[in-house]
Amino acid sequence: MEITAEAVRAGMAAARYVTTPRVETVVYLALVLEKPLLVEGPAGAGKTELAKVVAAMLGTEVVRLQCYEGLDASHALYEWNYQKQLMRLQADREHAGWDELKDHIFSREYLLERPLLKAISAPRRMVLLIDEIDKADEELEAFLLEVLAEHQVTVPELGTIVARERPVVVLTSNQRRELSEALKRRCLHLYLDFPGVEKEREILALKVPALEAQLRTRVAEFVARLRKLGLKKSPSIAETLDWARALVALGIRELEPGPVRRTLAVLLKHEEDLRKAEPAIAGVGKSSAVER
């Protein structure tokens, strides 16, 4: 697809991702400038989904690198298939000379591709999703710099592998720690917050069409109110959708304290949060009663 601002807008709509002009502009820029996109924001605001949507838009696949504490270069970039190399050495013990063998066992055949290398060496343009980069150690960021800025990976024994098609890189972070300046400098930055009531209603309409329009508004408003309470874990968009589906499945047509309390476990996962949400739940019945 040819990349224009309109095409991006249409593509995101086609991928059923409800968004704002700001997000569209930044995604468009990331594609045009071929810069990595760093998406920050609270958990459950649709950061990972954004990468998948970009992939769907471009008609390509997501290569996902899920970061975790202790993730190192051998799991992110590449690793030599040590066992296979050893077997080769055992098999060739009598015949081959060292030089020949050395060239052989350090060839692509003995290289295990990890996500970063896979995204770089793929024959077509991939979307590389580096998920929750804030969970990885700071050392890993240094490894990423080469991939992000130059779109290449250096394997000492093989040389530098340059991307044939530059991957679209999306990094996500929940801000559990500050990322390094060097990394931020190389990326475009996007802050993705929870959607407002309006947007959330749109999302609900798109993803849970079975929910009635009036109830949809109530659900969106209620969730927005919960997010303002400063809970330990605010309900994510996915949880809102789950809740909406639960309401549909249970045949609940009005938001009233009783049914809300029964189903709230879908939205809130901490005992403390449930207690905090109690006034909001009590308020649900009143406001709808007044309007009825």
């Binding site: 700001r22 502009t25 930044v26 820029l29 045009v32 400038l33 810069k35 760093l38 475009l188 930055h189």
Partner: peptide, 29 residues
Amino acid sequence: MDAARAAAAVGVERTALRDALAAALVKDE
């Protein structure tokens, strides 16, 4: 420099320009 390229890419519509420049210049919400 990124900001300059971003501005060239999105044009002069004010909101888009603001979002584009922000993406390139401001890395901390």
